[in-house]
């Protein structure tokens, strides 16, 4: 991965809340940063090639689209099998995010987190079943933690001073 320079960071920060909905959004970002549209496009392209920018596109709000059942599925998978488990969970095409996180025993034995979104509880349960089937015996245990309330969700609002990032795309 190439290190981000100041121009890259400035572009990320300027666009983290979204591209302006005007005919030439890259030009508008460029104007605000004293760059040219060509540079903004080239930098975004390079960062996308590099993987720093995962994707550029329309980011839907799942909740507003009726996906009220936001389930954090958590899995206990042997450390040796984590890569394979992650690959299988992603391959189902039904998870929006999938991360390995540390176990914190005895409170928390689960080391893989995969987010699912469904319109009702039955659909959510069916998705969890699909994930369980995909993992098979790799999963030594799992839980689903549904969100009972969204207390705060502001998305990308970092780096007003000097850079920032987001863990999650919503």
């Amino acid at each position: 991965m190439t290190k981000l320079d100041d121009i890259d960071r400035a572009i990320v920060i300027a666009t983290q809340g979204g591209l302006p909905l005007v005919a030439d959004p890259y030009g508008a970002v460029a104007d605000a940063l004293g760059l040219s549209a060509e540079v903004v496009i080239a930098r975004l392209d390079a960062m996308q090639q590099d993987g720093v920018v995962r994707r550029i596109g329309v980011v839907p709000n799942h909740y507003a689209l009726g996906y009220r059942f936001n389930g954090m599925t958590v899995w206990d998978v042997a450390d040796d099998h984590v890569e394979e488990a992650g690959r299988r969970l992603c391959a189902t095409g039904v998870v929006s995010h999938c991360y390995q996180r540390p176990r914190l025993l005895p409170d928390w034995p689960y080391n893989i987190f995969a987010m699912i979104h469904a319109r009702d509880e039955a659909a959510a349960t069916a998705l969890v079943e699909r994930l369980a089937t995909a993992l098979g015996p790799l999963a030594r245990g799992h839980r689903v933690l549904f969100s009972t309330r969204i207390l705060k969700k502001t998305g990308l609002r970092l780096g007003r001073q000097q850079g920032g990032g987001t863990p999650c795309s919503g």
Binding site: L4, R9, V12, I13, T15, Q16, G17, G18, L19, L21, L44, M47, Q48, G51, V52, V53, R54, R55, I56, G57, V58, V59, P60, N61, A64, L65, R101, F113, G155, L156, L158, G159, G163, G164, G165, T166, P167, C168, S169, G170
Partner: peptide, 28 residues
């Protein structure tokens, strides 16, 4: 249409999704 979808909240934004920790740090 995108402006309407954004105002209604159906679209969070049109823009880049940045890899975690590429800029800054976070935790759950």
């Amino acid at each position: 249409r995108l402006e309407r979808l954004r105002q209604k909240g159906t679209v969070s934004r049109v823009g880049a999704v940045i890899r975690p920790h590429a800029v800054g740090h976070s935790t759950l």
